[in-house]
Design a protein around this nucleic acid. Sequence first.
DNA 1: AGAGAAATAT
DNA 2: AATATTTCTC
Length: 557
Amino acid sequence: MVCTRNDLSAWKDFPKGLRVLLLDEDSDSAAEIKSKLEAMDYIVYTFCNESEALSAVSSRPESFHVAIIEVSTSSNNGGLKFLETAKDLPTIMTSNIHCISTMMKCIALGAVEFLRKPLSEDKLRNIWQHVVHKAFSVGGNDLSESLKPVKDSVASMLHLQSEEGEPNHEHSDKIEDASMIHENDREPSAVNSKYPAPSTPQLEQGGRLLVNGDVQEHTNWSTEKESGDPDGESKSVETTSGNIVAEVTAPVDQPQGPRETMVKGEADLVDCTKGERTVDSHPQDRVNSKDSHAGAKRPNTDSGLHSSWPNKADRKKLKVEWTTELHKEFVQAVDQLGIDQAIPSRILELMKVEGLTRHNVASHLQKYRMHKRHILPKEDNRRWPQSDQTQRSCYPHKPIMAFPPYHSNHVVPVGPFYPMWGTPHPASIQSWGSQGYYPWQPTETWHWKPYPGVHADAWGCPVMPIPRGNCSKHSKYAECSRIDCSSTMDNSSMPQSSVEHQPAEELIDEVVKEAINKPWLPLPLGLKPPSTDSVLAELSRQGISTIPPRINGSNSC
DNA sequence: AGAGAAATAT
DNA sequence: AATATTTCTC
């Protein structure tokens, strides 16, 4: 009758079927208790003398979940021996005498509770709590066989994910609902309607699990890198069977450093539970915050609704708002990492923004790249009239043959495609580029590397006509190793439709790919060999520092 | 597992 | 229409 883990995952209506060892020398009393317990769908094993009970519990300890032991009046130590022996078994002592010292003795010896006779249904109803409590108090390893399944079952009910146990969503929701109420005395409502048998947790332990479940929700939110989405990206509080108690008892975690991102529920205006939440930011953490007026720009900042933490429903839909701030941090991270390192997880790491997920970053990065590739060149040309030519011309975005048609002297009054992203004013909303913020590592370091393992730019990347003069200012390796479009295309007569520039990009991709994959072949028309600078940079990037001294500054532009 | 692209949602 | 999230593919 060993209760295995599998049995327990099927223990849907816990605590029905809980196995109770009952020791009472008074057979009438025993019968009475037994019938009450059985009415609650507990399974009762009655013993009328201690030694029988002892042998039963020692020979098959896994057969019982809880014991109710009468403190015998007839013998001196009646019942206490059992208590001492069956330490793994949550044991409730009972007696019709209620001598305080006896009670204390029982508790001191490990009894989980002392119940005065007669044992009413109410008293008996809650004995399952001790089972659960024990299951969660004891470390996973020394958990007695009979309790493991209990723990699994409960963990599963609470959606705590004990090991790979399948979480039970219906249950978790209900429990969560119940826990939101924070009441100790639960009438047979949510939980109990599903588990009609006993219950009405009164003891601290019982309630604690639920309350802590709630706490954990919060903890989860504040630490999780990915909000509670089920794809498991949440690296936060992975509650496992071994550490639930510790986890749950720990104070709600104080973000120690990471900034927090602003997230917004979808229904901003509805009510406190749905309204936007602005997490307090930690000024001391904002080491990189460059603009003091940033706060004023935050469209969402502080509507005074700090009240409630997101409940589950809302949490799912929390939306990251890419404010200027946030975007700036993003760009900084990206710049800092450089093109080949700028992957969502690293960016996320660098940004240290609380609550931001890798998905968020990935998405933003996707957009960022799109803009870099397709939009910025246009934007750049048209919206940075003051810029020295270098900035524009050295843009690393790929293909350039198809630079958007447009004459620099022709002021285009029409709004940009993506006004948000291209606005030149540093203080205004998002602008993708990082120029101006991090002059030591300008966006030029963004060399899109379409083919893993090789830096395309080092091998020749197509590029716009090189403007006169300014090249030498930029030591980056990219700029001199590009196609000189003017040799093959006439800028002034370039196609006006940006549609036509797509195929050209792909073509260039192909050409570059070919050049990369077959370095022994002559470079295709339009590709220049890599410059010395670019080769050196690539070599040093790959950890090769010693180069034969045969370099003659041939990187003329 | 995680990056990136595409699809989908708001 | 812009942009964020989700889903899908590799």
